[in-house]
Amino acid sequence: MSENLKIIEIEVLRYHPESDREPHLEVYKVPFTDDMSVLQGAQYIKDNFDGSLTFRWSCRMAICGSCGMMINGIPKLSCETFLRDYHPNRIRIEALAHFPIEKDLVVDLSGFIEKLESIQPYIIPKEPRSLEQGEYLQSPQQFNDYIQFTSCINCTLCYAACPQFGLNPDFIGPAAIALLHRYNMDSRDGAAEERMELVASEEGVFNCSAVGYCSVVCPKHVDPANAVNINKTNAAKDYFLRFLSPKGGSK
């Protein structure tokens, strides 16, 4: 055991809203084994050095989306990032970029939750069906059209990777637009025109300048950049063709 135990320096961006004017860095020397994640490093600090260190986590297996943080400046899930890959260098962990810091590594996600609600993230049936009419059928091809965009775990790493969201917090942003696209692409859904009002708005897709980093950091390969950019084309079509069609998406 003891010969396996190495020490890594973890630098943590700390912020206590009641006593700190602004965040500051603190360094902890953490003994670790090769199987320890960055999240476990943070837990070690909380258990052994400072019980007030605050961070979110739950599943420890990259599916709950709670433990995202900036690790050496890159948004990552701390549960699937390993201390051994940084040793012997120092590792720096900070709250996810572009969000307001609530305390230490915890950010304020209320804006994101509002955006999720605003995209109407549920199927709004194209045609109402009674029980007698039976279920909605979907072909494998129709299923393939949207399945990729269902994989989002709301970890918000893509927002921490998106400078346009950092510059304009009103931007609906990658994950919410990817989810919006998921419902628009679902053959059972008929609300794409309703959602267009948001897509084409000043908070919508045209805030994106195709940086593409959101798709790079996405741990679930959702490719939100693609969803956003496909909707730029959709919104442009809607913009120019709305006079031809009486059912244009927005005013």
Binding site: E197, E202, K232, A236, Y239, S250
Partner: peptide, 10 residues
């Protein structure tokens, strides 16, 4: 919501 005029420039 205000519709963006970006499509022209974009």
């Amino acid at each position: 919501l205000k519709r963006s005029n970006a499509p022209i420039f974009w």
